[in-house]
């Protein structure tokens, strides 16, 4: 590992960053998908009649139980068998997004169930329908309680975006591999650089979530540190 190889990686940094941008796009896509679907799954598990709730539990079991690489392969190669072409990027967003939704659903479910039943009763006693009570009373509280657990999920899926490498998405790992394929001596500096980039992203992301947490903090409704 010579100074020379470090300099080469330094000059290749724009390429790595271009790859990292793809990871960020994946991240945004999968978090958004995971948030919407995860919240829906949580609400169904808590409030829906039993057969519907059971379907949500089965969904969550599948996506928490199948390895991520297997999910990626299923979503990438699966549709092809039925003549549906799907880009590696889309397949990665769907596979990682649905998987994250299963994990996020349990963060949200825990938070929703932590809200005392009296909150719902009080909202209903004012004449609010169930959905309105969930929207205006339960969720604003549950989402605040979710933030701590959610920052965990964020840190986890941020790094999982590199798994998209496995189905050929040209993200940061793929770019690093291109570098090292040409010159194997760049391997260590290149992957150290990738590691460093993710450390920075993890820090920035959790710092932002912490900021949101402090902004939204309400006396009596904080997760204490």
């Amino acid at each position: 590992m010579t100074v020379e190889s470090w300099i080469q990686v330094w000059y290749a940094l724009p390429v790595l960053l271009r790859g990292l941008l793809v990871n960020l796009e994946l991240l945004l896509g999968l978090l958004a998908l995971g948030l919407v679907v995860g919240m829906a799954v949580a609400l169904v598990e808590v409030y829906a009649p039993r057969p519907v709730a059971a379907a949500a539990v089965a969904y969550e079991w599948f996506f928490r139980g199948v390895p991520e690489l297997v999910l990626l392969f299923l979503f990438y190669f699966g549709p092809d068998q039925f003549g549906v072409q799907i880009s590696a990027f889309t397949a990665a967003v769907l596979a990682l997004g649905f998987r994250s939704s299963a994990y996020q659903s349990q963060i949200f479910r825990g938070a929703i169930q932590a809200i005392p039943a009296g909150q719902m009763l009080a909202a209903r006693s004012l004449g609010m329908g169930r959905l309105r009570a969930i929207w205006h009373v339960v969720l604003p509280q549950a989402l605040r309680l979710s933030l701590a657990g959610w920052s965990n999920e964020f840190s986890s899926v941020l790094k999982d975006t590199t798994l998209a490498y496995g189905i050929g998405v040209v993200e940061v790992m793929r770019q690093a591999r291109y570098l090292t394929a040409r010159n194997f001596r760049l391997a260590l500096p290149a992957f150290i650089a990738v590691a460093f980039l993710f450390l920075i992203l993890t820090y920035l992301g959790n710092w932002t979530i912490g900021l949101v947490e402090r902004r939204l903090r309400i006396p009596g409704l904080e997760v204490r540190r």
Binding site: G118, Q119, Q141, L221
Partner: peptide
């Protein structure tokens, strides 16, 4: 309806 334990909306 006034509850024994108030049930004010915490947030």
């Amino acid at each position: 309806f006034v509850f024994q334990d108030f049930n004010l909306f915490t947030h």
